[in-house]
Design a protein around this nucleic acid. Structure first.
Lengths: 149, 149
DNA sequence: ATGTTTAAAGACATAATACTCTTAATTACA
DNA sequence: TGTAATTAAGAGTATTATGTCTTTAAACAT
């Protein structure tokens, strides 16, 4: 798995929020139901996004979470690094600690290119774009409809 | 992490074996010491490669493991799938079960291209090539030498 | 036959990730 | 002032990945 489950959940929630017309607070309960993710677990994941100042939260009635910045300014990578940390894409594909330009592992060159591509993808795509690209498949209603027919 | 540790260990061992001039049996003990991997754990990993008919093993004195096929005929992907299964590269980046051409997730197109690239890389590079590319960095002796200077 | 060398198989231990629940803190509203 | 709605924080459990060890089986040497 390239991304942890936590990370995928966080991305899906972010995209879901980015797809809202008005940036009002949405309860985590509602998000968890729409995305079919455990409420408790999603709560934990979104806490990290709140700490990373990607979301802001509000307690009490009519509270919830919402995007802190404009969705066009939040990249895929922002969300990934907030949850998974500096992530996969610094590591050697073979797990060799000293791997680098000076002492490349046999796969270093090719894997560097791949990493670069993936990193660029993550850095260049915003959650706004992802939301526009149709978030039909983010909620399970649509998904199940697709599967059963 | 794109690949599990088991998988990285299996790759390193395979490349190490591919780098041998004569394809004689090498003890797992020796491999584990050369690659600085726990002997017990490496044993488990290599069992999977033996079951997958990438390696063959022989018990008793002068036994060990060796490549079953010519290293030029064993791809990176062969080793990866033997250990990690059909792996990362069929999965949706957002973990959505129904994601596909019919019902793509927002990231589907871009991620498909990435997966395709990675898959091609894995499929087109053999462990023989990896071994030729210099396996200096596979054994920790060389590695430590690099780190400390 | 017996003992030594090796991998295979299986049992166990530890760590990381995923997931669940409870309690505390904050806000709104009656 | 008190109660309901909501996230935050923390504790606990479950599952999976990783790592260790012991026992068994195969091959060889004597």
């Amino acid at each position: 798995m390239l991304l942890s489950k936590s990370c995928m959940y966080g991305l899906r929630a972010s995209v879901q929020l980015a797809g809202k017309k008005d940036n009002t607070y949405v309860t985590i309960r509602e998000l968890s139901e729409d995305l079919d993710i455990s409420f408790f677990f999603l709560t934990k994941v979104l806490q990290r996004l709140t700490q990373a100042e990607i979301l802001e939260s509000y307690k009490g009635p009519n509270g919830g979470v919402r995007l802190l910045k404009h969705p066009g300014e939040v990249t895929f990578l922002d969300v990934v690094t907030a949850i998974d940390g500096a992530c996969t894409l610094n590591e050697c594909a073979l797990g060799l600690p000293g791997c680098g330009v000076m002492k490349p592992c046999p796969l270093h060159d090719k894997w560097s290119i791949m990493k670069e591509n993936i990193m660029n993808m993550m850095q260049n795509i915003t959650i706004a774009e992802l939301a526009n690209r149709g978030n039909d498949n983010l909620d399970l209603d649509g998904l199940i409809h697709y599967i059963i027919r």
